[in-house]
Design a protein around this nucleic acid. Structure first.
Lengths: 337, 337
DNA sequence: TTGTATGCGTTATCAT
DNA sequence: ATGATAACGCATACAA
């Protein structure tokens, strides 16, 4: 079957210890030994068995990235960066999808899952209950880094976004444009998720700052941050009186759907309704109109997340760290660029 | 540290063998034994060590999905389906990106990679040289299923697309619309990749069928199937005389870029230039205009691929199988729906 | 039906 | 600097 250390040792007439030393790049090996072993390795096409190595060392060299749905552009773009960043420090990435299933999220968080062959987990919840985290217990059994949330409690490493400020920036931009009937798409029916709550808070704060009234009918829920839900939400908004003249969407995907709904209703973006999203996905740069958005800097989030996670893997006892990723408004055609 | 079989056995006053039997769901265990063991398992919160299990059985329960870039919608949509299909049969999925790096592709194909802790590999090359496969040798060392290509040679399991026919369908549709100057975007500068060659063949065949001349300047290369390249290619096409009145793009992403270029040039889609793509990504359903495309049925491709791969894992000696996934033209606004 | 013992391929400890 | 050997945690052949 497969060539083992033992086979190589036999061939090279040395002990397995020496072969292992050569393979692992151990310092104190004489050049002639190293050469002899290396030739045997080449001759026999030996490849170390990663599983055996893992059993011995406890390290798999694998990270898990947990997202709701990998085909949501924000997550696939994040995944790309995570895989690249992980690859640079010698890790590979397994991807898990939770769908919108809380049980699945909890199962993964608790480590109840059957096969945990990864050294640590990057958890990027679309929506996360604080309760969910509490169930994980005070001491995570396995290295865990949370992505995107902004409820740092000192227990978990964290790459956060300042969702409140991001929302304020987006809505502030609409205000600066002179819009007065500014709606929101993306609140959650059950108000128990951090991200939408924070974005709603920022939205309301920006309206208050501008001295604008907040029309409750202009806060529109969207269960999934999808094009479909954005479309449906916008249709509902267009039926309300007075009709909104601007919409802050909690994700670019919602915004894409909203834009389409505006045009299908015979109106125009941005003239009749200005639209701003969040995420800065590639799709929004080529759409018509191109999408004004709050850019979240996925490459930085990914890099920091991997840094935090590998650090925790190596130093399980280190104090939890929080990194707040910067964001910035990018003005494009959907708000009249 | 972690609770082991041995610990559980001690606690339950039975042998490790019995505990192992209970854990693995072995038939012949007396109810009282099973109950006793299960209680100990629950009490001690025992979880089987997947790595040790793997070392023993040779199975990791993990598949690898290799794609050029996970943030290309076609691949992220495929990945979603693959992860779901794999999950249904008890596998998890690791994702590798090759970028556009041939060495990386070859490394993965040859199994030279350092850490192969997966039972099999789904390889979805954006572009694949036949040479690349030849290097893999006649007998793949590890279960491998190829996706998307259509050069079945009986050596590898294969989920293929009839690229020639898909291209003919797309171009035939443009012909039926009465377009006569039909361009193509997506040929490869180095003509050594299967997919673009096949699509080019279908394109030329469809033109010939319609008795249309083929203007060589209307076959436009695109190194990466990206929005950017589609945009750049379309700009070049719009400068040619006579200007094309339709474009067949080898991917939806190219089409998205091409559409944008048409509008940026002050022209309209579909009136001035009709555009058709391939892949049927979600983005094309909400874009303006929505995108006419050849749908590739990613869910079916994913399901079949996982079926083929798990079959090969269980029956390494089975004859290679090829599945040709169906495709169908979906007419939308970009060709005047 | 259940217990005992061996080995999967590696790393690391203890020698020398 | 190198060799012999004991784990790592599990599954299973063989015994009972």
């Amino acid at each position: 079957m497969a060539v083992t250390l033992r086979d190589v040792a036999e061939r090279a007439q040395v002990s397995v210890r020496t072969v292992s030393n050569v393979v692992s790049g151990y310092e104190h090996v004489s050049p002639q030994m190293r050469e002899r072993v290396n030739r045997a390795i080449r001759d026999m096409d030996y490849r170390p068995n990663q599983v055996a190595r893992t059993l011995r060392t406890g390290r798999t060299g694998m990270l898990a990235l947990v997202v709701p749905e990998i085909d949501v552009p924000y997550f696939s773009e994040l995944a790309r960066e995570v895989i690249e960043a992980a690859s640079e420090v010698g890790y590979r990435v397994m991807i898990d999808q939770t769908g919108h299933d809380h049980d699945r999220e909890r199962e993964l968080l608790l480590g109840n899952d059957r096969s945990m062959l990864f050294d640590g987990m990057l958890f990027s919840p679309l929506v996360t209950k604080s309760e969910l985290l509490d169930m994980h217990g005070a001491t995570p059994e396995r290295p865990l880094v949370l992505l995107g949330e902004h409820e740092f409690d000192g227990r978990y490493d964290h790459v956060a976004i300042d969702n409140v400020q991001a929302a304020r920036d987006a809505v502030g931009h609409l205000v600066a444009l002179g819009r007065t009937r500014i709606a929101a798409i993306g609140t959650q029916p059950l108000e128990e998720y951090a991200t939408p709550l924070q974005r709603t808070a920022g939205y309301e704060r920006a309206l208050a700052d501008a001295g604008l009234d907040r029309d409750p009918r202009h806060s529109t829920p969207a269960a999934h941050y999808s094009r479909e839900d954005g479309y449906a939400a916008m249709r509902r908004l267009l039926e309300s009186t007075p009709r909104p003249d601007a919409v802050f969407c909690y994700s670019d995907l919602l915004a894409v759907g909203a834009v389409r709904a505006v045009f299908d209703a015979g109106l125009r973006v941005p003239q009749d309704v200005a639209v701003v999203g969040v995420d800065d996905i590639a799709e929004g740069r080529y759409s018509r109109p191109s999408l004004t958005t709050v850019s979240l800097d996925a490459p930085l989030i990914a890099r920091e997340a991997v840094r935090l996670l590998t650090r925790r893997i190596e130093h399980p006892e280190a104090a939890a760290e929080e990194v707040v990723a910067p964001h910035r408004l990018i003005v494009r055609e959907s708000t009249g660029g």
